[in-house]
Amino acid sequence: QEELVKAFKALLKEEKFSSQGEIVAALQEQGFDNINQSKVSRMLTKFGAVRTRNAKMEMVYCLPAELGV
């Protein structure tokens, strides 16, 4: 569980995922086979993730800066 949270936060820091499906796929690539869209959705809510525009003006998920991840 701890490893999943770390990987999840690291992915969001990249600010390149525009959908929950993309986050699920990226986590599965890292070996988290039991991850699915509903789990990702709950984690996004739990950590207060928001959708914002990145440098390329794409809408992407990211974590609020005050979490200091």
Results as ranks from 00 to 15, higher is better:
residue 69 V to G: 13
residue 67 L to H: 13
residue 69 V to N: 14
residue 16 K to M: 07
residue 57 M to K: 10
residue 2 E to H: 12
residue 39 K to V: 15
residue 36 N to K: 06
residue 11 L to P: 00
residue 19 S to F: 08
residue 23 I to H: 00
residue 22 E to G: 08
residue 60 V to G: 02
residue 54 N to E: 02
residue 65 A to G: 12
residue 19 S to E: 08
residue 21 G to M: 15
residue 19 S to P: 00
residue 14 E to S: 13
residue 32 F to M: 02
residue 13 K to E: 08
residue 3 E to V: 09
residue 49 A to L: 02
residue 45 T to R: 14
residue 5 V to E: 15
residue 22 E to V: 04
residue 34 N to Y: 12
residue 39 K to T: 14
residue 50 V to R: 09
residue 7 A to P: 00
residue 50 V to Q: 09
residue 53 R to M: 15
residue 36 N to H: 06
residue 12 L to K: 00
residue 22 E to K: 08
residue 16 K to Y: 04
residue 55 A to M: 06
residue 58 E to I: 08
residue 62 C to L: 08
residue 15 E to K: 08
residue 33 D to W: 11
residue 3 E to F: 11
residue 25 A to I: 12
residue 66 E to G: 09
residue 15 E to N: 07
residue 52 T to N: 08
residue 36 N to W: 04
residue 7 A to Y: 06
residue 58 E to A: 05
residue 12 L to D: 00
residue 18 S to R: 15
residue 24 V to M: 09
residue 58 E to F: 04
residue 33 D to N: 12
residue 42 R to Y: 14
residue 32 F to T: 00
residue 3 E to G: 10
residue 47 F to T: 06
residue 49 A to S: 04
residue 23 I to S: 00
residue 65 A to Q: 12
residue 64 P to M: 04
residue 37 Q to W: 07
residue 20 Q to S: 12
residue 18 S to P: 04
residue 54 N to T: 05
residue 18 S to V: 11
residue 8 F to G: 00
residue 55 A to G: 09
residue 54 N to R: 03
residue 28 Q to D: 03
residue 34 N to L: 08
residue 25 A to R: 14
residue 37 Q to P: 10
residue 63 L to F: 06
residue 46 K to W: 14
residue 2 E to D: 13
residue 51 R to L: 15
residue 17 F to K: 03
residue 43 M to G: 00
residue 55 A to P: 06
residue 38 S to D: 15
residue 53 R to Y: 11
residue 55 A to Y: 04
residue 36 N to A: 05
residue 36 N to T: 14
residue 19 S to D: 08
residue 68 G to E: 15
residue 59 M to Q: 06
residue 48 G to C: 06
residue 30 Q to C: 06
residue 16 K to A: 08
residue 32 F to G: 00
residue 68 G to V: 11
residue 66 E to I: 07
residue 24 V to G: 02
residue 68 G to P: 15
residue 15 E to R: 06
residue 60 V to H: 03
residue 7 A to E: 03
residue 43 M to Y: 05
